[in-house]
């Protein structure tokens, strides 16, 4: 039992560090990828290939002067970025980062907590994420910030519904709400994307909207709202908002991979592991590496879309959410139900 707690604490700390490092290098990757798309070089001054750029950015963020506007609500102004960061870090504990691992003669799962309401927990945490933006935007006492906050909340509410409906179809086909089980089910058979292609598409679009990423970055659209909800923020408070976005991107990529792309599983894994003669721990490590490969692909995908598509107009965004995605998601539930009924799985 003691070993169990030690293992979990190590895992939590490792998860925290990995989230921060991935978020740090996502900022770098974003700038490099945008440079690639726009035929520029991107950051290349700090260190080889500009690899130390995130470090330099971090130091810059910490050293900058911190300004709290006079007329703003000070407590809530500080609470905003803290909440954004906290909610961003909360979802990672449920994701199965790999299979079983053998340590000190015991077997552990490479997952901090496997709740039997895991899917709902993830859903809840994403819906709480908007509080940081709303509180920060309102407490800034700035009309642009307020506009950003209001847009964020309306957008969140609208796309949450479609996301929830897409998840319902997934729960129907997997029959469980635990993320560990969803990942484990995909080990031998096909990944869930085969059974839920429409659900995946809806989930992906909603993930873009919930992350406030372009083309859904209405809350901070810099060409009309200056910086949206973080207009008044400076120094590391701004840094926390931006960092929270990148951590959210990392975690939601991990969620997409777990839900629809087999998590830490990969095709012919048992055959490959047997052919290479890997021990349990090595096989788990291989699975984790594969999972991170998939996650990095999705982070790249998020950036790819951001630097390719223009931003939506607000009415287009609302129309897409309410009039296209929600009916499609309901249709998806219906189709899933009919297919399950024809296969005799509805008992």
């Amino acid at each position: 039992m003691e070993n169990y707690y030690i293992f979990k604490i190590i895992l939590v700390v490792a998860l925290f560090v990995v989230s921060l490092v991935v978020a740090m290098y996502s900022t770098f990757a974003e700038r490099k990828i945008s440079a690639l798309m726009q035929d520029r070089l991107g950051p290349n001054r700090a260190g080889p290939f500009g690899l130390l750029q995130p470090l330099a950015d971090g130091i810059k963020m910490f050293m900058k002067e911190e300004i709290i506007p006079n007329v703003s609500n000070k407590t809530l102004f500080i609470l905003g970025p803290c909440l954004a960061m906290t909610t961003a870090l909360m979802a990672g504990v449920l994701i199965p980062w790999g299979g079983k691992i053998e340590l000190w003669g015991e077997t552990f799962n490479l997952q901090v907590a496997d709740l039997n309401i895991g899917v709902l927990y993830i859903f809840g945490v994403t819906s709480l994420g908007v509080y940081g933006i709303m509180i920060g935007g309102w407490a800034s006492n700035n009309k642009y910030s307020l506009m950003g906050a209001i847009r964020a909340s309306a957008q969140m509410i609208s796309y949450e519904i479609a996301m929830g409906l897409a998840i319902i179809a997934l729960i129907m086909s997997t029959g469980t709400m635990s993320l560990g089980e969803i990942a484990a089910q995909q080990d031998a058979g096909l990944a869930n994307i085969v059974y839920q292609p429409l659900g995946f598409l809806i989930f992906l679009i909603c993930a873009f909207a919930e992350l406030n990423r372009a083309p859904f970055d209405m809350p901070e659209s810099e060409s009309e709202l200056i910086g949206g909800y973080h207009t008044e923020y400076s120094s590391m408070k701004l840094g926390l908002f931006l960092f929270a976005e990148y951590i959210n991107m990392f975690i939601s990529s991990a969620v997409i991979v777990t839900f629809y792309f087999g998590g830490y599983n990969f095709p012919f894994q048992n055959e490959i592991n047997e052919a290479l003669g890997l021990s349990t721990n090595m096989a788990t490590a291989l699975g984790t590496i594969v999972m991170f490969g998939k996650i990095f692909f999705f982070i790249f995908f998020f950036m790819w879309i951001r630097w390719t598509l223009p931003r939506f107009r607000y009415d287009q965004l609302m129309r897409l959410g309410w009039k296209s995605l929600i009916p499609l998601a309901i249709l998806n539930i219906l189709i899933t139900g009919v297919v399950m009924w024809m296969n005799g799985k509805l008992n």
Binding site: L115, N116, I117, L120, Y121, F123, G124, S127, L128, V130, Y131, M134, W138, L146, A149, I150, S153, A154, M156, I157, E160
Partner: peptide, 26 residues
């Protein structure tokens, strides 16, 4: 009652109170 707890948070804290805040901010 885990299901009730998480649904309570999703529905009340995650949706209804966000709408309250939305209206009050406006």
């Amino acid at each position: 009652a885990q299901f009730l707890a998480i649904v309570h948070i999703v529905v009340y804290a995650g949706a209804i109170m966000v709408l309250f805040l939305y209206v009050l901010m406006l």
